[in-house]
């Protein structure tokens, strides 16, 4: 696939969504989609670690914060399109399903996959985040000043 800036931005977005979504959520939607395209596995799912970095004082020099588990896999569709999955955690199916979705999103099936898998996944994640943000907002302190005995 010829990468333009627009397609790169779109691909970044769906890969990020697939990586962060809970494995069970993606699995349910993927099985709901129900069509596993002909493909071969280029890189069997592999569990590994990524060293997460932070910055001193949030803005200064980078430092190593600790690792997180990540699973990756790559597949190739019968038509030749390659899909990559990099997902958080240790679920091999999660990585494979992410790679399959990534590949399909580069084909004519994109609209179908987007509707059946990515959109509902995005909605769930957005809803979950909004609920947390709403609960946080309810714990925001409203200060009031006591009436002082000033003349």
């Amino acid at each position: 696939m010829q990468m333009t800036e627009e397609t790169e931005t779109a691909r970044k977005a769906w890969l990020g969504l697939l990586a962060k979504a809970p494995a069970a959520d993606l699995a349910a939607l993927w099985h709901g989609f129900g069509q596993v395209p002909a493909h071969k596995v280029l890189r069997a799912p592999e569990i590994g670690a990524v060293m997460v970095r932070g910055r001193a004082g949030a803005v200064g020099a980078a430092f190593n914060l600790g690792e997180m588990t990540v699973t990756r896999a790559s597949i190739q569709l019968a038509g030749g399109v390659v899909g990559h999955g990099y997902v958080q955690g240790r679920c091999k199916d999660h990585a494979l399903q992410a790679a399959l979705v990534d590949a399909l999103m580069q084909t004519d099936a994109a609209a179908l996959v987007d509707r059946a898998v990515l959109t509902p996944l995005r909605d769930t994640v957005t809803r979950r985040k909004a609920t947390r943000a709403a609960k946080a907002a309810a714990t925001k302190v409203d200060f009031f000043t006591m009436v002082r005995g000033e003349d």
Binding site: G48, V50, V52, G54, E67
Partner: peptide
């Protein structure tokens, strides 16, 4: 356990200014 994992790489420094804050 972590010593048994292959290291895929290092992340970009996390951007805590964009944290979705619970607190």
């Amino acid at each position: 356990y972590r010593t048994t994992l292959p290291r895929f790489g290092g992340s970009l420094p996390v951007d805590t200014a964009n944290m979705a804050c619970d607190r």
